[in-house]
Design a protein around this nucleic acid. Structure first.
Lengths: 186, 186
DNA sequence: GTCTATACACCGATAGAC
DNA sequence: GTCTATCGGTGTATAGAC
């Protein structure tokens, strides 16, 4: 009969970890099966579209979680400057001090970007827009706020890429530290 | 008998394009064979270690070309400020205005980073050190110069990642524009 | 140094029992 | 809803002729 062995969200979490650590192409069904404890056929029960289906679901859920953990506190109540500094702390935790990679970044730098461009775009642009909005509250003019927000987001992404590439989380930590001093400056 | 059909450097160039556009895992021997016009067995003649061998060779050559086209002009003769601004123009051309991805970035965000970490580290750190040196000539203190250089490099990488991820080169162009105004400022 | 042909493991995906 | 067993295809890699 087979009741669900673990909650579906837990399945998504484990799939996320594999895609985030290995990238889309290197994440084999054998990996994904092992990570979830589910047989391949069971994975196909939840995701009829197979691996691509799993990755898009995982990317969408990742965007939701990012929204909860990063964007809502950023937009939420409190003094705007403090919320922006709080975002930097939350990012530090979210990306495990630079040890974890960004799922969207991994999907972006893979051979099948186009499959996930909708989710990548939504995640990136949602982040930029939210940050720009709070920078606006702080007093930056709209275009300046947008520029700063875009710059901040792509610096985080670049820092995670470089950290992963050289096997040293230092660039991520230093990037957060620099942004603490410059993001609100001028 | 079989003389070389195309110069070896041309083979490397074509392999580079495949790895840079598809990433390591998605670049199949069939792709690489088609792109070079060489049969699989011929590729194994040049690269006994197979695909990993091709990718490391390609990464090393990519670092050499980057050095020629970007780092030497940056370090070369001329007024330091102008050389730094010149680097930004050269990067704009090198990455085809944001349409091309960074090979090292693609390798960094793949499931086999560890295979290429030596080359990725060499490329990234060589770039940072060169830029820091010229920033030093401009008058920035050593630690400040290093911070600025690291920040600049990871912004370029982040901009290329975001551009690829959303399918729009805009973030890359805007990043170069912002850096033209801020990299030498303060 | 290039090719054709092929080995054989693993890939994503499916069938069908329970 | 889960499993085992298996499919056909493609992956990397090799053998051996020319």
């Amino acid at each position: 009969m087979g009741a669900a062995l673990i909650p579906f969200d837990e399945v998504l979490d484990r799939l996320t970890r594999v895609f985030r650590d290995e990238g889309y192409e290197a994440a084999s069904l054998a990996n994904l099966s092992r990570a979830t404890g589910l047989g391949k056929a069971s994975l196909y029960h939840y995701f009829p579209g197979g691996k691509a289906d799993m990755a898009t679901a995982v990317a969408e859920r990742s965007n939701e979680i990012f929204r909860e953990k990063i964007l809502l506190p950023l937009l939420g109540p409190g003094e705007p400057r403090m919320r922006i500094l709080g975002m930097l702390d939350n990012l530090d935790r979210y990306y495990a001090r630079g040890e974890d990679s960004c799922l969207l970044g991994m999907l972006a730098m893979g051979g099948s970007v186009t499959l996930f461009q909708k989710q990548v775009r939504a995640g990136i642009e949602g982040w930029i827009l939210a940050l720009a909005r709070v920078l606006g509250e702080v007093g930056f003019a709209e275009t300046d706020a947008l520029q700063r927000a875009e710059d901040a987001v792509l610096r985080i992404e670049g820092a995670l890429l470089v950290a992963r590439g050289i096997g040293d989380a230092g660039p991520f930590s230093r990037t957060l530290a620099r942004m603490r001093e410059t993001l609100l400056e001028l």
